[in-house]
Design a protein around this nucleic acid. Structure first.
Length: 561
RNA sequence: GUGCCCGUGGCUUAAUUGGAUAAAGCGACGGCCUCCGGAGCCGUAGAUUGGAGGUUCAAGUCCUCUCGGGCACACCA
């Protein structure tokens, strides 16, 4: 519902309740916050509050009795926006608003266009969303695709809600994993040149390792034959991870995901940012020496056990880099850090929170969004996807099969917290089973109706609503649609506050559905010119909201399909 | 074994963060094209929300226990 109106109602309710409190001389601090909801059942009014139920314990009175006291008070103060008030069920107060309010909202949507739905609840707070951050040791698979879609949509939603958001990809270009990558490629290089050398333990098995080796042969020929020294490995490592990273970047671009910055783990060492942070923690007494290694007192901050930050051999662990990295994020001025991780990393959260706590930052300002796994269903069967075993579906392949829009929507249509079952056959079908088409079809239909209007010389000037007779939009379905449209801002806010991008997806589906129903029951362009104009105005507003919502998800709004 | 996440019609999921009669899609069955795009619309059947207690005006949602499933438990990243 429109924010001004719900604020106005909340204020009214607050004042009325205050008066009751004073008359019974009850401490005003006991007053709970007023919560207004937009009921899904139309019989429960346009807006509703449960405040009387909440107050019954405090005031020691029957909820219904309290509700009627509040209602009486409100009726005396406000008659402009409220049509009438009902007290229903155990003591809910249901408001029915004046229809003019809805027409006003409709105008607002059309006036604000692409800005409609935006709010300022984020108050410009600096947020960093770090996501994907896949090791540059292999290509992106569909699981990463889900993280990418969730992170990207969440970022857009947070921005719409008034946060100042920066996205970042953390590149693990330091440490054992990329070394193993270098060794794996080198081994394949030498195999291809006919040498018999052992393949590294836990080496990377995929075909792309051979591809990289072939590339190097093509470019450098037999230059590294017989070599296995540090600088050769270093060369293979750099060559391989840079190529793979480029490949990852390309995949993300094709998926519609762009990062504001790419942060190298190695740069933390090059700029000597790791040691000082560890030193600092040591001074605070949160890092101690044990058996030659340095340990973080993670258990003191709620983790299961203490964790090594500097190994016995003097090498920092991944955690050490990560501590320095997150310290750096805070030092760059970010107030909220959101990391999006695959669910398999959940055991790492407590340890990271402990580190942040130890550094003196509020552990609550660091939040991890866990994205559950994706299982791909092909011809009714589950296709496995473990990175370790080398059996995974590359994101690239999925994009070729179903396209960006379908892939993104499928990743975003359910809670990121629940497993995604990605049914390839449904995703590929351009049919009613596919929710993406259902939504896009609604948009295309609207465009087509507007085109028809133009042909029949019924042209709508969206910059001026003076010739629109809003009163003609009096059908129940029409008011229902306007109500839904007006909810959009709330949906974005909730989606931003609870970090649930899928709320936007289900909203979209619901709105598309309302339009399809309306379309079947009513003719937009008809004999009556005024009515046609008014309805065109309505569907133009739907078009705007559909487009705004699709944009948040990174899904296209096609005018023709 | 310990910790985290998840159990909702046959299947995939919702449920305004504790609210009113648990809502959609798929699948099944039955209807709707002289008409703006049928990639659509309408209807019927299908649920004791894994189970047992508890908290309160109110529990799918919170607490305890229990049973199933997933994941994690490195001086890997």
């Amino acid at each position: 519902m429109n924010k001004d109106i719900s604020e106005r109602l909340k204020k009214l309710l607050g004042e009325s309740i205050q008066k009751i409190f004073l008359s019974q001389s009850i401490d005003l601090n006991l007053m709970p916050p007023v919560i207004l909801t937009t009921p899904r059942n139309p019989e429960h009014g346009h807006m509703s509050t449960n405040i009387a139920l909440q107050l019954s314990g405090i005031l020691q009175r029957e909820p219904k009795q309290i509700a009627s006291s509040i209602t009486e008070e409100i009726i005396q103060r406000e008659s402009e926006i409220i049509n009438h008030i009902d007290i229903a069920g155990p003591g809910f107060i249901n408001f029915y608003l004046n229809e003019q309010i809805f027409y006003h909202i409709l105008k607002e949507i059309v006036l604000q266009r692409e800005k409609f739905g935006c709010s300022d609840i984020g108050k410009g707070e600096k947020v960093m969303v770090e996501f994907v951050s896949v090791n540059p040791t292999g290509p992106l698979h569909i699981g990463h695709g889900k993280c990418a879609a969730v992170g990207d949509a969440l970022t857009k939603i947070l921005k719409a809600a008034g946060y100042q958001v920066t996205t970042e990809y953390y590149i693990n270009d330091h440490g054992k994993q990329v070394n193993t990558l270098g060794e794996s490629v080198l081994a394949r290089y030498r195999h291809l040149l006919g040498e018999e050398v052992p393949f590294p333990e836990n080496g990377y098995q995929g075909d792309y390792i051979f591809d990289l080796a072939r590339e190097i042969i093509k470019e450098y020929h037999e230059q590294f034959k017989g070599k296995s020294d540090q600088s050769t490995i270093q060369f293979f490592k750099d060559y391989a991870y840079k190529k793979i990273l480029q490949d990852i970047k390309n995949d993300l671009t094709n998926f519609g995901v762009e990062f504001d910055s790419w942060f190298s783990e190695q740069s933390l060492y090059d700029q000597n940012k790791v040691q000082p942070v560890i030193e600092q923690l040591k001074k605070k007494g949160y890092v101690y020496n044990h058996h030659g290694a340095l340990w973080l007192k993670a258990s003191y901050f709620g983790d299961e056990k203490d964790r090594v930050v500097i190994r016995e051999n003097g090498e920092p662990t991944y955690l050490a880099s990560d501590i320095a990295y997150h310290d750096d994020k805070f030092k760059r001025g970010f107030k909220i850090l959101i990391d999006i991780w695959g669910a398999d990393h959940h055991g790492y959260i407590q340890r990271m929170k402990a580190a942040i706590d130890a550094m003196g930052y509020d552990p609550e300002s660091f939040q991890v969004l866990l994205v559950q796994f994706v299982t791909l269903i092909k011809e009714g069967k589950i296709v496995g996807m473990s990175t370790r075993g080398g059996e995974f579906i590359p994101l690239k392949e999925l994009l070729q099969e179903v396209g960006k829009d379908v892939a993104r929507y499928f990743f975003l249509m359910h809670s990121h917290d629940s497993h995604t079952e990605f049914d390839l056959d449904i995703a590929k079908s351009q049919s009613l089973e596919n929710p993406v088409y259902y939504i896009q079809y609604a948009y295309a239909r609207i465009c087509s109706i507007i085109e028809k209007g133009k042909k029949e010389d019924i042209l709508l000037d969206l910059n001026s609503d003076s010739q629109i007779l809003f009163g003609l939009l009096d059908k129940e379905e029409e008011l229902e649609i306007i109500k839904k449209l007006s909810n959009f801002k709330k949906v974005i806010e909730r989606s931003a506050v609870y970090w649930k991008p899928y709320l936007v997806s289900s909203y979209l589906y619901d709105l598309a559905s309302a339009f399809h129903k309306y379309y079947t029951n009513y003719q937009v362009i008809g004999k009556n010119r005024e009515l046609s104009m008014a309805r065109l105005y309505l569907i133009s507003a739907i078009k705007i909201v559909l487009e705004n919502a699709l944009t948040l998800l990174g899904v296209c709004a096609p005018e023709k399909m």
